[in-house]
Structure formats: structure tokens, C-alpha cells
Design a protein around this nucleic acid. Structure first.
Length: 118
DNA sequence: ATTCTGACTCGTG
DNA sequence: GCACGAGCCAGAA
């Protein structure tokens, strides 16, 4: 995963890989992914990566609907078309969403640093 | 090159 | 519990 000679680590590509590893029915947060990648507070960059990943299709597809903020709110739903697509995608996987908030967020939270052992 | 913004998060008051 | 400010990184103007 990590090249020993990489000066500029592609934050985006790393984010994509981690997001792709999120199991269906589980959700993760920007901060958790950023923390797993080494940045303590680079959560904004993760969100930016999601926006860039919005166009990816096929093998490059990234389930960005499973990535939400730390409060369990679908902050990025307004970037979907239609905005309700994100909520429906989660509910289709068995994740109940009420008022743009994921129910049982703590149980469904998937932390790569914890669930994904190196 | 400099400035500003943003799918975020944390510490204070 | 809520509001404000600071920190971090990538891209656009």
C-alpha cells in the first residue's frame, strides 16, 4: 500500500481504498479515515476526496454514501442527485436514516484503525 | 505566489 | 447543549 519512496502521498487514493473496504451496512466518518491515514485533523481533505470520487465509476467506484460526519449526519447528501439518493442507498443496505441522521450510528460505526488490523 | 473556501473536528466559554 | 475560533490539506481564482 505504501511506497517507501513516496514523498507526496496521495491522500485521495488512500481514502478511496479505505472507503472501498467499508462493509455494506456499516458507516465510517471523515475523521476516522483521516486518522487512520495518519493525519490527525485532515478530515476536510477526506470530504474533498469524496467530492472528487463522486465521478468515479466501475472498479474505481467509491461508496461515499457510507462516509458521514462524526455526528452521523449525511452532510454530503446535497451533493447527490437527487439529494435523497444517499439516504436511500444507506437504507437499501439496512442502515435506517431519520432526519438525515444515521440511527444506531455508534453500533454501525466502522473505524478502520479498529476493525482493520494491520 | 497569495488568498479563500470547503462533504470536518476539537477545545473553550 | 450551543457558538465561536483554530488547525489541517487540496484546489480554484
Amino acid at each position: 500500500m505504501k511506497e517507501p519512496n513516496e514523498r507526496y502521498r496521495n491522500f485521495f487514493q488512500d481514502v478511496y481504498e479505505v472507503v472501498r473496504l467499508i462493509p455494506p451496512g456499516r458507516v465510517s466518518t471523515y475523521g476516522a479515515i483521516a486518522h487512520y491515514l495518519g493525519s490527525k485533523q485532515g478530515a476536510r481533505t477526506v470530504g474533498w476526496a469524496m467530492q472528487a470520487a463522486h465521478d468515479l465509476r466501475g472498479d474505481e467506484y467509491v461508496p461515499c454514501h457510507r462516509v458521514i460526519n462524526r455526528l452521523g449526519v449525511l452532510t454530503g447528501k446535497q451533493f447527490y442527485n437527487p439529494p435523497s439518493a444517499m439516504q436511500e442507498a444507506l437504507e437499501a443496505e439496512g442502515v435506517p436514516v431519520i432526519d438525515d441522521k444515521v440511527q444506531d450510528f455508534t453500533q454501525r460505526f466502522w473505524d478502520p484503525s479498529t476493525e482493520l488490523q494491520p
